[in-house]
Simulated scan of single mutants.
Amino acid sequence: MTLYTTLTDHDLVAFLKDGDKTAFTEIYNRYKGLLYIHAYNRLRNQQEADDVVHELFASLWTKREELFLKTHLSGYLYQAVRNRIIDVISHKKVESAYIVSLQHFIDHSEAVTDHLVRENELTALIEKEISALPPKMKEVFELSRKANLSHREIASKLELSEMTVKKHVNNALKILRSKFGLISFLIYLGHH
């Protein structure tokens, strides 16, 4: 019988790739505390730090067969947590900007019909710009934002790599933001 606590990270990863739950548990027990502390120090929120670590390990298990480490396991896990922390922080900033913008609009709004007219005009302009995107970028963007498909689902549906899907979505967002500004575009996305 293998004593998992004595195995190297490299050996644990090999067992993990084969679906060994005990190896996964050992990796979890070995790194969860350090990763949580790192996440908490950056986020200053216990629930968010717990969520980041939980999502990382859930992803590690579901993607175990395709796991390819360019570095040590500890470096991979640290980088993965760091990326998730950045996602949480940037999501908070976008959410905060949207709320501030919305509150400002409510505080200074004119008649509701005027708002609806402006919103419809903005929506029409954005739809026009979306239509002007290159065909594949437009298709990917609409599946992402209107059909609410994940990058993985889009990649599977269109037979593209997830990286290609991500690039199409990011490029479409850059184009649209440059034409309409961030706040206007966020308000549009909030309705779709």
Rank of each mutant, 00 (worst) to 15 (best):
I106E: 09
A49T: 00
S96A: 13
E142R: 13
L116V: 10
M163T: 10
A58Y: 11
I130E: 11
E95T: 15
A147S: 13
W61N: 05
I126Q: 09
S184N: 15
H115I: 11
E121M: 09
L189P: 03
F180N: 08
M137C: 02
S101A: 08
Q46I: 01
M137E: 03
R152K: 07
H168I: 02
S150C: 03
L186T: 05
V53T: 03
K167A: 07
V94C: 03
K32A: 15
A124D: 09
H91K: 14
E110W: 06
G181K: 14
V169E: 00
M1L: 07
S59I: 08
I183E: 10
D9R: 04
I175T: 14
S131Y: 13
A132K: 08
V13M: 06
F68E: 14
R82V: 06
K70R: 08
N171K: 14
A80D: 06
L35G: 07
A124R: 13
I89A: 05
E55Q: 10
R145K: 14
R118Q: 14
E142P: 01
L16N: 12
R118E: 15
S178W: 13
H104R: 11
S131C: 07
Y36H: 02
D107E: 13
D20C: 04
Q46Y: 01
H191L: 12
K70Y: 07
K136M: 09
V140Y: 01
S144C: 13
K17A: 12
E129C: 14
D50S: 01
G181T: 09
S90F: 11
L3H: 12
K17S: 10
L133A: 06
L34M: 11
Y188F: 15
L189T: 14
L56S: 00
Y78K: 01
K93D: 12
K174D: 06
F105A: 03
H91T: 14
Q47F: 00
P134W: 11
K174R: 10
Y4D: 09
E153P: 04
S131R: 10
P134R: 15
R30M: 10
F180S: 06
H54L: 12
G33Y: 12
Q47S: 01
L3I: 15
L3D: 15
Y36N: 02
I183Y: 10
A39D: 02
S109V: 11
Y40F: 14
T25W: 07
L182S: 12
V117G: 04
M163C: 04
K63Q: 15
E139F: 10
K92Y: 13
